[in-house]
């Protein structure tokens, strides 16, 4: 595995330099001729919803244009802020465990497991939770957390401990849904960081070991600098994903009990499709799309992806 090196020159520039093309402008025209029809169509198809959401958000069915009324309604609902708070709590539980857990296991495997076959086996095992459809993940954890039939309570019952209402008592329901996130995404963090550790030059590590560096110093001064861009990537992707969380929560708790697990996506779903207030939901959609676009613009400069 390898981390893509960032390239200093575009393919185009290299082509031009290498061949000294005199027909360069014709080539560049060809780029636009080929790119525009397809890219233009897709760009429009992907942008239409944003425009439609804005239009929908500024109107209200038969009343026509209503200005920012829908935004005012949407943003004055205390349940919105409740859902944002719950989403943040969910992230505060899940993300640190995922990132620190993934990092810990990556370091352990990197230092302890030497056999290539074993490493390959761990790679495949770690991939399994990631590729499972979210809905099926919900099914899996229904079997774990269900009060009467779930395996967790069955095991608790065997030890004589009290059985708990994992999905229907407030703090537990949040922990249960966040634990599913942890189950599914810690392996992802592990895989990314383990791949990053493979790019640390072994000479640096050996030199540090000759100098008597402790395990911690080796991590802090040699490995961490290589992992930092990947840690950022993981953090940004996971943050964006928390806003998307829907499927497994929908089948596990449906947002309940009360509004404990009514995270942002579930809240918008509720406004739009259970209360059938599509105008208000559109206003929310516009706000969320704008917020995520701003978020992306800010973080995109820190993403390690080769973007040129």
């Amino acid at each position: 595995m390898n981390v893509a090196p960032s390239r200093s020159m575009t393919v185009g520039a290299r082509v031009a330099m290498r061949t000294g093309w005199s027909r360069r402008t014709r080539q560049e025209r060809l780029v636009y001729k080929l790119l525009l029809p397809v890219f233009g169509t897709v760009f429009v198809l992907a942008t239409i919803p944003f425009v439609m959401a804005v239009i929908e958000a500024l109107t209200a069915g038969s009343r026509g244009f209503v200005g920012f009324d829908n935004f005012a309604t949407a943003l004055s609902n205390p349940l919105l802020f409740e859902s944002i708070k719950q989403t943040a709590l969910y992230a505060a539980i899940a993300l640190p465990v995922e990132i620190l857990g993934g990092l810990g296991v990556a370091l352990l495997v990197h230092r302890v497991v030497r056999s290539a076959a074993l490493r390959a086996a761990i790679y495949v095992l770690a991939m399994i939770p990631i590729v499972i459809p979210q809905i099926a993940v919900g099914v899996v954890f229904r079997l774990v957390y269900q009060p009467d039939y779930g395996i967790l309570n069955v095991l608790l019952g065997r030890t004589g401990a009290d059985q708990l209402l994992w999905l229907s008592s407030p703090p537990l329901a949040m922990i249960a849904t966040a634990s599913v996130d942890i189950w599914q995404w810690t392996p992802f963090v592990y895989l990314v960081l383990f791949a990053g550790l493979q790019t640390v030059p072994s000479e640096s590590v050996e030199a540090a070991q000759v100098d008597g560096a402790s395990s911690w110093m080796q991590f802090r001064h040699i490995e961490l600098p290589y992992l930092r861009p990947l840690l950022l990537l993981v953090l940004f992707f996971r943050l964006a994903d928390v806003v998307r969380v829907f499927d497994h929560v929908y089948v596990l708790t449906g947002g309940g009990p009360g509004t404990t697990t009514q995270y942002l996506s579930l809240y918008i779903y509720r406004i739009g499709f259970q209360f059938s207030d599509l105008s208000q939901a559109s206003a929310l959609a516009v706000v969320v799309m704008a917020a995520m676009t701003i978020f992306y613009t800010i973080i995109s400069r820190f993403l390690p992806a080769d973007r040129g």
């Binding site: 239409i48 919803p49 944003f50 439609m52 959401a53 929908e56 964006a240 806003v243 998307r244 829907f246 942002l264 996506s265 918008i268 779903y269 739009g272 599509l278 939901a281 559109s282 929310l284 959609a285 516009v286 969320v288 799309m289 995520m292 676009t293």
Partner: peptide, 9 residues
């Protein structure tokens, strides 16, 4: 972009 925001329009 979260799917729920996109799916509404």
């Amino acid at each position: 972009l979260p799917p729920i925001a996109v799916v509404i329009p």
